[in-house]
Amino acid sequence: MRISHARPSLRSLQVFESAARCGGFTAAGAELGITQSGVSRQVADLEAILGVSLFVRNGARLRVTPAGQRLANQLAEAFSATWTAVSEAAHSDHVVTLSMLPSVAARWLAPRLERFMTAHPEIDLRITASRHLVDFAVEGVDAAIRYCPAPPSNLDAVKLADETISPVCTAEYAHKHGISHPDDLSRATLLHGDLPENWEAWFREADCAIPPQAGPRLGDDTAILQAVLNHQGVALGRSLLVADEIANSRLIMPFDVTLKASYGYWFVRPKETPNVALTAVQNWVGEAFGEA
Protein backbone atom coordinates (compact mmCIF):
# COMPACT_ATOMS: atom_id res chain seq x y z
CA MET A 1 0.00 0.00 0.00
CA ARG A 2 1.06 3.60 -0.64
CA ILE A 3 1.51 5.59 2.60
CA SER A 4 -0.67 8.69 2.89
CA HIS A 5 0.56 11.83 4.63
CA ALA A 6 -2.89 12.44 6.13
CA ARG A 7 -3.48 11.74 9.80
CA PRO A 8 -6.17 9.21 10.71
CA SER A 9 -9.14 10.46 12.66
CA LEU A 10 -9.60 9.47 16.28
CA ARG A 11 -12.94 7.99 15.29
CA SER A 12 -11.33 5.61 12.79
CA LEU A 13 -8.78 4.53 15.40
CA GLN A 14 -11.55 3.88 17.89
CA VAL A 15 -13.54 1.89 15.34
CA PHE A 16 -10.50 -0.20 14.42
CA GLU A 17 -9.61 -0.93 18.06
CA SER A 18 -13.16 -2.07 18.71
CA ALA A 19 -13.17 -4.32 15.62
CA ALA A 20 -9.86 -5.91 16.59
CA ARG A 21 -10.99 -6.47 20.19
CA CYS A 22 -14.48 -7.72 19.29
CA GLY A 23 -13.22 -9.97 16.49
CA GLY A 24 -15.37 -8.60 13.71
CA PHE A 25 -17.08 -5.64 12.12
CA THR A 26 -20.61 -6.63 13.12
CA ALA A 27 -19.76 -6.91 16.84
CA ALA A 28 -17.82 -3.64 16.72
CA GLY A 29 -20.75 -1.91 15.04
CA ALA A 30 -23.08 -3.14 17.78
CA GLU A 31 -20.68 -1.85 20.47
CA LEU A 32 -20.29 1.56 18.82
CA GLY A 33 -23.84 1.98 17.58
CA ILE A 34 -22.99 2.09 13.86
CA THR A 35 -23.59 -0.28 10.96
CA GLN A 36 -21.28 -3.10 9.90
CA SER A 37 -20.63 -1.29 6.62
CA GLY A 38 -19.75 1.86 8.58
CA VAL A 39 -17.10 -0.07 10.51
CA SER A 40 -15.76 -1.58 7.29
CA ARG A 41 -15.51 1.83 5.64
CA GLN A 42 -13.66 3.37 8.63
CA VAL A 43 -11.17 0.48 8.73
CA ALA A 44 -10.57 0.68 4.96
CA ASP A 45 -9.92 4.43 5.22
CA LEU A 46 -7.49 3.85 8.11
CA GLU A 47 -5.61 1.17 6.14
CA ALA A 48 -5.33 3.54 3.21
CA ILE A 49 -3.90 6.31 5.36
CA LEU A 50 -1.43 4.03 7.20
CA GLY A 51 -0.42 2.08 4.12
CA VAL A 52 -0.68 -1.29 5.90
CA SER A 53 -3.23 -4.09 6.06
CA LEU A 54 -4.82 -4.33 9.49
CA PHE A 55 -7.01 -7.36 8.77
CA VAL A 56 -6.67 -10.42 6.57
CA ARG A 57 -10.06 -11.06 4.96
CA ASN A 58 -11.06 -14.61 4.11
CA GLY A 59 -14.65 -14.37 2.98
CA ALA A 60 -16.74 -13.45 6.01
CA ARG A 61 -13.89 -14.22 8.41
CA LEU A 62 -11.40 -11.65 9.64
CA ARG A 63 -7.99 -12.06 11.23
CA VAL A 64 -5.93 -9.22 12.65
CA THR A 65 -2.51 -8.91 11.05
CA PRO A 66 0.63 -8.65 13.24
CA ALA A 67 0.85 -4.93 12.44
CA GLY A 68 -2.83 -4.56 13.23
CA GLN A 69 -2.46 -6.39 16.54
CA ARG A 70 0.42 -4.15 17.61
CA LEU A 71 -1.63 -1.06 16.80
CA ALA A 72 -4.71 -2.46 18.55
CA ASN A 73 -2.75 -3.18 21.73
CA GLN A 74 -1.27 0.31 21.82
CA LEU A 75 -4.63 1.92 21.13
CA ALA A 76 -6.28 -0.13 23.88
CA GLU A 77 -3.75 1.22 26.40
CA ALA A 78 -4.12 4.77 25.11
CA PHE A 79 -7.94 4.69 25.21
CA SER A 80 -7.90 3.18 28.70
CA ALA A 81 -5.67 6.01 29.94
CA THR A 82 -7.89 8.55 28.17
CA TRP A 83 -11.11 7.30 29.76
CA THR A 84 -9.42 7.20 33.16
CA ALA A 85 -8.33 10.82 32.74
CA VAL A 86 -11.83 11.84 31.64
CA SER A 87 -13.37 10.07 34.63
CA GLU A 88 -10.94 11.68 37.06
CA ALA A 89 -11.58 15.10 35.56
CA ALA A 90 -15.33 14.61 35.88
CA HIS A 91 -14.99 13.64 39.54
CA SER A 92 -12.06 15.86 40.53
CA ASP A 93 -14.22 18.02 42.79
CA HIS A 94 -14.93 14.93 44.89
CA VAL A 95 -11.30 13.78 45.29
CA VAL A 96 -9.25 14.99 48.26
CA THR A 97 -5.64 13.90 48.75
CA LEU A 98 -4.48 14.32 52.33
CA SER A 99 -0.89 13.90 53.57
CA MET A 100 0.10 12.90 57.10
CA LEU A 101 2.70 11.01 59.09
CA PRO A 102 2.48 7.21 58.86
CA SER A 103 1.88 7.06 62.62
CA VAL A 104 -1.05 9.48 62.38
CA ALA A 105 -2.50 7.54 59.46
CA ALA A 106 -2.21 4.20 61.26
CA ARG A 107 -3.03 5.20 64.83
CA TRP A 108 -5.45 8.10 64.44
CA LEU A 109 -7.10 8.04 61.01
CA ALA A 110 -7.44 4.31 60.33
CA PRO A 111 -9.71 3.62 63.34
CA ARG A 112 -11.93 6.56 62.30
CA LEU A 113 -12.01 5.94 58.55
CA GLU A 114 -15.39 4.22 58.57
CA ARG A 115 -16.88 7.21 60.40
CA PHE A 116 -15.58 9.51 57.69
CA MET A 117 -16.93 7.34 54.87
CA THR A 118 -20.33 7.17 56.56
CA ALA A 119 -20.42 10.95 56.99
CA HIS A 120 -19.10 11.72 53.48
CA PRO A 121 -19.70 8.83 51.05
CA GLU A 122 -19.50 11.30 48.15
CA ILE A 123 -15.81 12.14 48.82
CA ASP A 124 -12.97 10.06 47.42
CA LEU A 125 -10.41 10.49 50.22
CA ARG A 126 -6.84 9.53 49.28
CA ILE A 127 -4.12 9.34 51.93
CA THR A 128 -0.39 9.75 51.39
CA ALA A 129 1.51 8.65 54.51
CA SER A 130 5.00 10.10 54.55
CA ARG A 131 7.50 11.63 56.93
CA HIS A 132 8.65 14.27 54.44
CA LEU A 133 6.88 17.59 54.07
CA VAL A 134 4.98 17.49 50.80
CA ASP A 135 5.30 20.21 48.19
CA PHE A 136 1.69 21.15 47.45
CA ALA A 137 2.66 22.78 44.17
CA VAL A 138 4.20 19.69 42.59
CA GLU A 139 2.90 16.59 44.42
CA GLY A 140 -0.82 16.82 43.77
CA VAL A 141 -1.71 16.95 47.49
CA ASP A 142 -4.64 19.11 48.60
CA ALA A 143 -3.93 19.40 52.33
CA ALA A 144 -1.94 17.86 55.17
CA ILE A 145 -2.10 17.09 58.85
CA ARG A 146 1.28 18.19 60.15
CA TYR A 147 2.92 17.65 63.51
CA CYS A 148 5.14 20.67 64.02
CA PRO A 149 5.78 23.70 66.28
CA ALA A 150 4.13 26.06 63.78
CA PRO A 151 3.49 25.78 60.04
CA PRO A 152 5.05 28.20 57.52
CA SER A 153 3.23 31.46 56.90
CA ASN A 154 2.69 30.75 53.20
CA LEU A 155 0.02 28.15 54.06
CA ASP A 156 -3.47 28.40 55.48
CA ALA A 157 -3.23 26.64 58.84
CA VAL A 158 -5.69 25.71 61.58
CA LYS A 159 -4.46 24.21 64.84
CA LEU A 160 -6.17 20.91 65.54
CA ALA A 161 -4.79 19.90 68.93
CA ASP A 162 -1.95 19.95 71.41
CA GLU A 163 -0.88 16.80 73.20
CA THR A 164 1.10 15.49 76.13
CA ILE A 165 3.88 12.92 76.34
CA SER A 166 3.94 10.20 79.01
CA PRO A 167 5.30 6.67 79.52
CA VAL A 168 3.09 3.83 78.29
CA CYS A 169 3.35 0.06 78.50
CA THR A 170 1.13 -2.97 78.78
CA ALA A 171 -0.35 -3.94 82.14
CA GLU A 172 1.40 -7.30 81.77
CA TYR A 173 4.78 -5.62 81.35
CA ALA A 174 4.22 -3.33 84.33
CA HIS A 175 3.23 -6.28 86.52
CA LYS A 176 6.13 -8.46 85.38
CA HIS A 177 8.72 -5.76 86.15
CA GLY A 178 6.99 -4.31 89.20
CA ILE A 179 6.52 -0.86 87.71
CA SER A 180 4.48 1.41 89.97
CA HIS A 181 6.87 4.33 90.61
CA PRO A 182 9.20 6.20 88.21
CA ASP A 183 12.23 4.75 90.00
CA ASP A 184 11.05 1.29 88.95
CA LEU A 185 11.90 2.14 85.34
CA SER A 186 15.49 1.23 86.17
CA ARG A 187 14.29 -2.38 85.71
CA ALA A 188 12.56 -1.69 82.40
CA THR A 189 13.68 -1.57 78.79
CA LEU A 190 13.20 2.00 77.64
CA LEU A 191 12.29 2.42 73.98
CA HIS A 192 13.55 5.62 72.35
CA GLY A 193 12.06 7.67 69.54
CA ASP A 194 12.86 10.97 67.89
CA LEU A 195 10.58 13.26 69.91
CA PRO A 196 12.04 16.50 71.27
CA GLU A 197 10.57 15.41 74.62
CA ASN A 198 12.88 12.49 75.45
CA TRP A 199 13.39 10.25 78.46
CA GLU A 200 15.93 12.63 80.01
CA ALA A 201 13.34 15.43 79.98
CA TRP A 202 10.67 13.16 81.44
CA PHE A 203 12.92 11.96 84.28
CA ARG A 204 13.63 15.61 85.16
CA GLU A 205 9.88 16.33 85.21
CA ALA A 206 9.32 13.27 87.41
CA ASP A 207 12.12 14.40 89.76
CA CYS A 208 13.72 11.02 89.28
CA ALA A 209 17.45 10.46 89.52
CA ILE A 210 17.60 7.57 87.03
CA PRO A 211 20.13 8.44 84.32
CA PRO A 212 19.01 8.03 80.68
CA GLN A 213 19.38 4.41 79.69
CA ALA A 214 20.48 2.91 76.42
CA GLY A 215 17.78 1.01 74.62
CA PRO A 216 16.36 0.31 71.18
CA ARG A 217 15.82 3.45 69.13
CA LEU A 218 12.93 3.32 66.67
CA GLY A 219 12.35 6.49 64.67
CA ASP A 220 8.73 5.72 63.78
CA ASP A 221 5.95 6.01 66.38
CA THR A 222 3.99 3.14 64.83
CA ALA A 223 6.96 0.79 65.26
CA ILE A 224 7.55 2.00 68.82
CA LEU A 225 3.92 1.44 69.83
CA GLN A 226 3.87 -1.98 68.22
CA ALA A 227 6.94 -2.94 70.25
CA VAL A 228 5.20 -1.71 73.41
CA LEU A 229 2.05 -3.68 72.55
CA ASN A 230 4.27 -6.75 72.15
CA HIS A 231 5.49 -6.28 75.77
CA GLN A 232 8.99 -5.25 74.64
CA GLY A 233 9.39 -2.27 76.97
CA VAL A 234 8.18 1.19 77.98
CA ALA A 235 7.95 4.11 75.55
CA LEU A 236 7.05 7.77 75.69
CA GLY A 237 3.64 7.87 74.04
CA ARG A 238 1.98 10.81 72.32
CA SER A 239 -1.43 11.23 73.94
CA LEU A 240 -3.48 11.40 70.73
CA LEU A 241 -1.78 8.36 69.22
CA VAL A 242 -2.21 6.16 72.30
CA ALA A 243 -5.69 7.35 73.30
CA ASP A 244 -7.52 4.46 71.64
CA GLU A 245 -5.11 1.88 73.09
CA ILE A 246 -5.53 3.38 76.57
CA ALA A 247 -9.31 3.45 76.21
CA ASN A 248 -9.50 -0.25 75.32
CA SER A 249 -6.95 -1.17 78.04
CA ARG A 250 -4.34 -2.51 75.63
CA LEU A 251 -1.92 0.03 77.11
CA ILE A 252 -1.67 1.79 80.45
CA MET A 253 -0.07 5.00 81.68
CA PRO A 254 1.61 3.82 84.90
CA PHE A 255 2.36 7.37 86.11
CA ASP A 256 0.58 10.73 86.21
CA VAL A 257 3.69 12.70 85.19
CA THR A 258 3.38 14.14 81.68
CA LEU A 259 5.30 16.50 79.44
CA LYS A 260 3.60 19.11 77.30
CA ALA A 261 4.61 18.45 73.71
CA SER A 262 6.39 21.29 71.96
CA TYR A 263 4.75 20.18 68.69
CA GLY A 264 1.08 20.36 67.82
CA TYR A 265 -1.23 19.07 65.10
CA TRP A 266 -2.16 21.45 62.29
CA PHE A 267 -4.40 21.19 59.26
CA VAL A 268 -2.55 23.00 56.47
CA ARG A 269 -3.36 23.71 52.83
CA PRO A 270 -2.35 26.16 50.10
CA LYS A 271 -3.69 29.68 50.34
CA GLU A 272 -6.45 29.36 47.79
CA THR A 273 -10.20 28.95 47.99
CA PRO A 274 -10.90 25.26 48.79
CA ASN A 275 -13.61 23.32 47.01
CA VAL A 276 -16.61 21.90 48.82
CA ALA A 277 -15.02 18.47 49.34
CA LEU A 278 -11.81 19.85 50.84
CA THR A 279 -13.80 22.10 53.18
CA ALA A 280 -15.83 19.08 54.31
CA VAL A 281 -12.65 17.08 55.00
CA GLN A 282 -11.12 19.94 56.96
CA ASN A 283 -14.28 20.37 59.06
CA TRP A 284 -14.50 16.63 59.77
CA VAL A 285 -10.83 16.37 60.75
CA GLY A 286 -11.24 19.36 63.10
CA GLU A 287 -14.27 17.80 64.77
CA ALA A 288 -12.62 14.39 65.08
CA PHE A 289 -9.49 15.87 66.67
CA GLY A 290 -11.73 17.80 69.07
CA GLU A 291 -13.26 14.53 70.25
CA ALA A 292 -9.89 12.86 70.84
Rank of each mutant, 00 (worst) to 15 (best):
S40V: 08
D220A: 08
S40D: 13
D207I: 07
A277W: 04
L32C: 03
A227L: 04
A292S: 11
L62R: 07
L229H: 00
W83I: 15
V285M: 09
Q282F: 08
V96I: 10
F25L: 01
M117C: 14
K271I: 05
H181A: 15
A261N: 08
G233Y: 00
V64Q: 01
H231R: 11
R2K: 13
E287Q: 14
T273H: 13
L109N: 01
Q14R: 09
W266R: 02
D135W: 05
S180G: 08
T35A: 11
A81P: 01
G23P: 01
T222Y: 10
G237S: 00
L160D: 00
H91V: 07
F136T: 00
R61K: 11
N248K: 12
T35P: 11
S249C: 13
R115D: 13
L62I: 07
G219P: 05
R217D: 07
T279E: 15
S130N: 12
A6R: 12
L98E: 00
L251D: 02
L160Y: 02
P8D: 04
S186C: 13
V138S: 12
N230Q: 14
V268T: 10
A137G: 14
L278P: 05
V158K: 10
Q213E: 10
G237P: 00
P211E: 12
F267M: 07
E77S: 08
A144Q: 01
V39L: 05
D194A: 11
T118R: 14
R126E: 05
T84Y: 11
P111R: 05
V56N: 09
A247M: 09
S80D: 15
Q36W: 02
T164N: 11
S99D: 07
A78M: 08
A60D: 08
F16H: 04
S53L: 13
A129K: 04
W266A: 03
I34V: 05
P274D: 03
V257R: 07
N73Q: 14
V268G: 03
Y265I: 02
F203P: 01
A150W: 14
L190H: 03
R57Y: 06
A209T: 12
P211H: 11
E172W: 09
G140W: 11
D156V: 15
H231N: 10
G264K: 02
E114N: 11
A261H: 06
L13P: 03
A28L: 04
P182Y: 03
L13T: 01
A144M: 05
A214M: 14
H94E: 12
N198Q: 06
D142P: 07
I34H: 02
D135F: 07
A144T: 06
D184T: 02
S166D: 05
N58H: 10
A48D: 10
A76H: 08
Q226H: 10
E287G: 13
W199E: 03
T258M: 13
R217L: 15
I34M: 06
A85T: 15
R41P: 09
R131T: 14
Q36V: 05
P274M: 04
G59E: 06
L75H: 06
V86K: 12
A214N: 15
S186Q: 13
H175N: 08
A214Q: 15
